[in-house]
Amino acid sequence: MTAAQSAFQHRHAAHCESGVAANLMTHHGIALSEAMAFGLSSALSFAYLPFVKLTGFPLIAYRMPPKSILKGVSKELKTRFHFETFGDPAQGMRRLDELLAQGRVVGLQTSVFWLPYFPEDMRFHFNAHNLLVYGKDGDDYLISDPVAELPQRCASADLQRARFAKGALAPKGLLYYPEHIGSREIGADAIRRAIVKTVRIMLGPIPIVGVRGINMLANKVARLDTSEHSLNYVGHIVRMQEEIGTGGAGFRFLYAAFLQEAASITGIAELERLSERLNEIGDGWREFALKAARMIKGRERFDPPLLAGMLRTQAGREKEFFQALKRAVA
């Protein structure tokens, strides 16, 4: 391992892509927190996509699509990333070895299912996971997976399989690293722009996105019958919200952390108060998850209209919140 690689610092993060972006930029000398990477790239969102199916259930996303954090961070920090994909797995592995030998820390897109260090029950076929490789020891790659508390190791055959998994969002061996960093400062303007963009997404006119998307999902939940399938549907919503590396409450707590940092950089004190308020809205999402889990466990009667009501309350609170956020940065 080169000196640069041994200086690499692994930091535990809530979400893979913001964690990778933060750890990679920090490695290159720009102090970037996960929350700042997340907020600066306007990654917070809500989308209910009934036409994209995950194991038979609609995709419910609490953030923007994969790669938007890397793109957003690179835009605001005027950083040029080098992205490379491969048709031939062997070549993709050779190229990774080459870059590691040059002393680089390399970002990879992988499937979750084929990574052996993931807990068995968490291994699903999700292809847009991000991690960093910071060295190689014999046949093992040294891996900084931001959602893992400590650095991990992965044998080359397993890593190859994870990098070249097929299916939706297939990574095709994607690797990346920053080639040129243009700006080392996170300016107040960039932060304000990022917040305005998030407000626009959350209060936008598309019925399946933002606050309107939450209401749309509420309407769908209100129409559920009390069958096993409906219980699975509700479990799926909670899983998307709490389980898939969100930092809790569908990224709401993470964005609250960003608003706090934003307050100190921009000097807009109101953002500090709004961070508190979003923290409380996050607690509302957790109450929804708890209620749903109790119904799944059979401790409470399964009552879809009640859950739909909770979702509508959340939609209402988020609507008011993002309107206030818009005024704060205007």
């Binding site: 699903f124 799926h236 389980e243």
Partner: peptide, 14 residues
């Protein structure tokens, strides 16, 4: 949390 465990096991069990 038990909430996470409940929904993950629900999916895994299925």
């Amino acid at each position: 949390s038990e909430v996470d465990e409940t929904v993950t096991l629900q999916a895994v069990d299925r």
